Amino acid sequence: MATSPLPPIQLKVQQTVNADDPTTWDILWKQNVTPWDAGEIQPSLIEVIENSGIEFPRLGRALVPGCGTGYDVLYLANALGVQAFGMDISETAIEAATRYRDASSLPGHKNANFIKDDFFRYKVVDDERFDLIVDHTFFCAIHPSQRVTWGKKMAELIKPGGFLITNAYPMLPEVETGPPYYLRPDHYEIPLKGTFDKIYDKVPEKSSPSHQDKERILVWKRKSE
């Protein structure tokens, strides 16, 4: 697999983040080195929620792991009326998300909640399982060796009949190191095999400039237990 020169800011991310110590993401947040932060909700998520024809839950609970500043969380709270939870390992990110929520004039902002926690260690009881999880740039941020564990955790956190939205990004085969780690849509197949059915797979009609020609949206439905 070929490599290409990395932009300085991406090189900084790779030099700072330790896959064995996810708390190192907080270093980048404290230094304001956040190239993944687009400053707004991704058009591809709006498209799948509003135009896919899938009947996502209009009540219930939703989760966004690796939520960062929380754009997706507030969007879900307002678009679907769910209790939306954003989770991040970085305390600085959670502080930024809380400020973003508190400054929002959107009517559903009170339904947006933020949790500082490690996704892989997070525990829920049955009645706290989620109806929807959105993985935007979390899967590409974890080391590929963690992907099977990621799938098991998704199966644990999502209730039967619930949904998982995954954004396959960045689809760049020339990138062999990370984060972000190169991925293809089929990289989700093994982690989710046996517990989820794929019900939607599409290149978005509109992407943000940073995601153009580099993303594909897939939606999965949790099987019965």
Rank of each mutant, 00 (worst) to 15 (best):
A2G: 06
A2T: 13
A2Y: 09
P7N: 01
P7S: 05
P8E: 09
L11Y: 10
K12G: 08
V13A: 06
N18H: 11
A19F: 15
A19D: 11
D20H: 13
D21V: 13
P22A: 11
P22Q: 12
T23V: 14
W25D: 00
D26G: 13
Q31A: 15
P35E: 02
P35H: 04
A38R: 14
E40Q: 12
E40F: 07
I41V: 15
S44D: 12
S44K: 02
E47I: 13
V48Y: 15
I49N: 10
E50V: 13
R58F: 09
V64G: 04
C67W: 06
G68A: 15
G70K: 04
Y71M: 13
D72H: 13
D72R: 05
V73D: 01
L74W: 06
Y75S: 06
L76K: 06
V82K: 02
F85T: 11
G86R: 02
I89K: 04
S90I: 12
T98F: 04
R101L: 07
R101W: 12
D102H: 12
D102L: 11
A103W: 08
A103Q: 13
S104P: 14
S104W: 09
S105R: 05
H109Q: 05
H109Y: 11
H109R: 03
N113D: 00
K116D: 05
D118R: 02
D118T: 03
R121S: 14
R121Q: 09
K123S: 10
V125S: 08
D126N: 02
D127C: 03
D127M: 03
R129P: 07
F130P: 02
F130M: 01
D131V: 12
D131Y: 03
L132R: 00
L132V: 12
D135V: 04
H136L: 00
T137D: 10
T137R: 00
C140W: 00
I142E: 00
I142D: 03
I142H: 02
H143D: 10
P144F: 01
P144L: 01
R147F: 08
V148W: 04
V148N: 04
T149L: 07
M154G: 03
L157V: 10
I158E: 02
K159A: 12
P160D: 05
P160M: 00
G161A: 01
F163W: 04
F163E: 01
L164I: 09
I165A: 05
T166I: 07
T166R: 06
N167I: 08
A168Y: 08
Y169T: 05
P170L: 08
L172R: 03
P173F: 09
E174I: 01
E174A: 04
E174F: 11
E174K: 07
E176I: 10
P179A: 04
P179N: 01
P180R: 02
Y181F: 15
R184W: 10
P185W: 03
D186M: 02
Y188H: 15
E189H: 07
G194F: 09
T195G: 02
F196T: 03
F196L: 09
F196I: 10
D197A: 05
K198G: 03
I199K: 01
D201C: 09
V203N: 04
K206Y: 06
S207F: 09
S208W: 08
P209T: 14
P209I: 11
P209L: 13
P209W: 10
P209F: 15
S210E: 07
S210P: 05
S210H: 05
E215Y: 07
E215A: 03
E215C: 11
R216W: 14
I217T: 15
I217W: 10
L218C: 14
K223P: 10
E225G: 12
